[in-house]
Amino acid sequence: MTVLTTSPATPPSSVGSADVRSARPAPASIPMARLAKVELRKMFDTRSGFWLMASIAILAVLATAATVVFAPDSAITYESFASAIGFPMAVILPIIAILSVTGEWSQRNGLTTFTLVPSRGRVIWAKALVSVGVAVVSMALAASIGALGNLLGSAANGTDAVWDVSAAALAQIFLANVLGLLVGFMLGVVIRSSAPAIVGYFVYSALLPTVFGMLAAFQDWFADLQPWIDFNYAQTALFDESMTGEQWTQLGVTGVVWLALPIAYGVWRVLRTEVK
């Protein structure tokens, strides 16, 4: 009732200008930077979204602390920290991308979003840009936390810090994580529903490699073909120190089939399907 007692007292004339029909300049279109800013805000402005983002830093700190505490002295190297932090990142980043897209459907928020911005392609672009930006920033943060852990760990051991990950290798790890995030994004636009898309991600990143691995183990003809067919397998090369030209080509070929084409299909669907 508190709401109601004040209602009739509110003069409708405060809606805006005195005359709704008054002349005004034609509005400018919504710039991409603003859309990206709004999409970034939407990643943080729910409790679950906020903690998902916060968990990147929290898990990086926990993984670093665990490495300092549990790893033997000989294993206090930057590579240990990088791989300890890398695992939670590989899970969280795709989920961030998935939820950024599927929230518009699962929570039916798209009814408002796509009414305020009818060009859905631009909204999806903004989401993709912001997701990749978040991935890069959070990986930089995680890499810094790992570096700090490496310094602390070796100081505690009284040894010199071992920096056994080259800049090129770090860049490849970044790329692998961005690809993982884009897989999440792809599943988001193709499936457009949070829970199935997240399940889909685990099928994609855990079940498929196992199936392909077994196939390769039992069928010789497939073992040779696997790098050209299995996207996950082609990505594992990114964690090697240096990649051959052939490995880059394999990554490109499998990436087109398992990532680029599904994204194209998903976006095409998003642009055409009804938003209810």
């Binding site: 939407k42 929570q107 928020n109």
Partner: peptide, 15 residues
């Protein structure tokens, strides 16, 4: 049809 986890103020702020 709103994200249930947003506050009313936040929904308006996004618009």
């Amino acid at each position: 049809a709103q994200h249930a986890g947003r506050t009313g103020r936040e929904v308006l702020t996004l618009a």
